[in-house]
Amino acid sequence: MIQIQTLHKKYGNVRALDSVDLTWNQGDVIALIGPNGSGKTTLIKCILGLVFPSAGDIHFMGRSILNSYEYRKDIGYMSQISRFPDQLRVGEMLDILTDVRNVKDSDRDMELYEEFKIEQIRDKTMKSLSGGTRQKVNSALAFMFSPKVLIMDEPTAGLDPVAVEILKGKIHRTDKSVRLMIITSHILSDLEDFASRINYLQDGKVRIDYSFAELREKSGESRLSKAIAHILNPS
């Protein structure tokens, strides 16, 4: 579904992405992990078209995304720090997204919206919301348009345990066979439950690109964190 072909990105002298080659298919749930500054967010931004690669290409359903924007109708994105226009109200935000995406109200997936009780905060401005609440709004919006590709950058950050469970439940329930999910997180245990493929980035390079099953096999560990540690430091 998404092919990343020898992708390079330099910021001045810093190589944020260094020859990244990845292929993600429909049905995959990608755990995109790595230390801070490893290039995860840059990679996601490249896929979203927010950042332009220095070299290489990204194909989305067979077509290059460079100089294209239509493909984004198939992407749901939950950003890391939920940066939203401060003065917009939650409801307005929702309406704008629905309107610009040209989606009928009845076609929307309102499960998270209801479970997170966002109706009650419709009239609050984004500025007035706490970080966790903003993240709830953010995740509800990402799922709302049933996108073919769901990108979640640190989805559980700032969420209370109850909300984390609700979100996990939603990820579980979502039909994964028709879509691709990309999740980054520091909390590896969160990913263990549904990750089908593990991509570990370090210093802009792909260090691990295995399916979860392969990873377990190679490392002989069942826990994700231990498996990764084992592969990176095969002592």
């Binding site: 924007y69 939203f84 704008i96 610009v100």
Partner: peptide, 9 residues
């Protein structure tokens, strides 16, 4: 940024 995550040029 929000608009850019949508299919808008």
């Amino acid at each position: 940024e929000v608009l850019l995550s949508l299919p808008v040029a």
